[in-house]
Computed example of a mutant assay.
Amino acid sequence: MKPETAVLDIQGHYRVYTEFYRADNAEQTIILVNGSLSTTASFAQTVRYLYPHFNVVLFDLPYAGQSREHNRHERFITREEEADILLELVEHFACDIVLSFSWGGIATLQALARRPQRIKRAVINSFSPIVNPAMLGYLRSGLIVMHEYDRESIGMVLNGTIGKHLPSLFKRYNHRHVTSLEHYEYDQMSFHVETVLNNGGRSCVSFAGQIEIPLLFVNGEWDEYTTPQDARLFTQHVRHCEFRTIAQAGHFLDMEHKAAWMQTRDALLAFLLPSQPNRSHEAILEHALAG
């Protein structure tokens, strides 16, 4: 399973590295949106169960991963611009579905609020509409060490908070990755964090109400930063939403252990392929229609 890779010109401003996993018999294409400081590599476990049911698109934002060398990094990119990039990629690859992880949910919800005609369903993993006390503490701690470019402390903050339930191998990978980033990547993330803190929250509910397609929110039972309970607050704003809780899993869901990987796989495929027999009775019982 080797992807087709390309570096695409986006709006004449950015160059974006992409990976396209083409499945010969797939009828739909899904695009995956990274969380903060992440790259296409972070979705390795997710691609395993989405392919070959779907064609799968991965990409690195202009300041991250294999897009970095193709861009000049002269100014910060806003979440609105990230939504612009996502929508252009949706058109380029003719995507039908969007799946986001963690902070990728902000740009994803903004993009969906514009009602792109191609997108029929979306999955929002490890995200909630509020910044609770645990997340606030994580953001403030992260902001301090990123401002100081304290690489070792950045790795420790990540693995000691949202990454606490990861196996040791993935913790080592995370530490190696986040301690090797460029200063402008820390600055870009600090910019996003400060925007959230200055707004008193994620400010995503103001446009969540504009989304008309069905959404699935998936959260880990042990995730104290984007809790299943907090995620269910989206019922106040989103017209059609479902919720699944992954048992004995934290923020990183399918990366944490085999049982969590299988639960996440089953939840996503039941939602995205509802005509197939893997749509379980439990998933139907957890269905919630907002409004």
Rank of each mutant, 00 (worst) to 15 (best):
V196D: 00
V196C: 00
R265Q: 14
H165K: 09
R172K: 13
D254R: 11
E27A: 13
F170I: 05
L99K: 04
Y186V: 04
L285E: 00
T108V: 01
H281D: 07
Q11R: 11
L158T: 09
P133D: 12
H165R: 08
H92C: 10
N132T: 07
W103M: 02
T264C: 13
L8A: 06
L99P: 10
R279S: 01
G220S: 02
D266A: 11
L285F: 00
F43P: 05
Y149L: 14
N159K: 10
R79N: 08
L61G: 05
S275Q: 10
H257M: 03
N132I: 09
S280E: 00
V56P: 12
N71D: 03
M135C: 10
L89Q: 06
A267I: 01
F243P: 11
T245A: 03
H175Y: 15
V123S: 04
K258P: 14
T40Y: 00
L268T: 11
W103Q: 00
A6P: 14
F54Q: 01
A6V: 11
Q28K: 15
I144D: 02
Y184M: 09
I31F: 04
A6H: 14
G105F: 04
I119P: 03
P116C: 01
R176Y: 10
Y21V: 14
S153D: 07
T161P: 12
L158P: 11
L136A: 13
R239G: 08
A26L: 06
Y173D: 12
F20P: 14
L37S: 03
L181V: 04
L272P: 09
I77D: 03
P167F: 05
I144K: 07
E82F: 12
Y138D: 04
V47I: 12
S206D: 15
A94T: 13
Y149P: 13
F252R: 00
A290P: 13
Q117A: 15
L109Y: 02
L181G: 00
E182S: 15
H240L: 12
P62F: 08
M262K: 13
M146E: 11
T195I: 02
N34R: 03
E81F: 02
A6M: 12
E282S: 11
Q263V: 09
F43V: 00
T226H: 10
Q229N: 15
L86R: 03
F191L: 02
G142A: 05
Y17E: 02
R15S: 05
L269G: 08
T226N: 10
L87V: 06
R68M: 14
Q45D: 13
Q28L: 13
H237F: 13
R121M: 08
S128M: 06
S206P: 15
A208Y: 05
S168F: 13
P133C: 14
V57S: 07
Y51T: 09
L169E: 11
N55L: 02
G12M: 02
N55G: 06
I30K: 06
E88K: 14
P129E: 00
R121G: 11
G209L: 15
E224H: 15
D60L: 10
L136Q: 11
A113Q: 07
E194R: 07
H53I: 12
Y149I: 10
L233C: 12
H70T: 04
P129H: 00
L109S: 07
H165G: 08
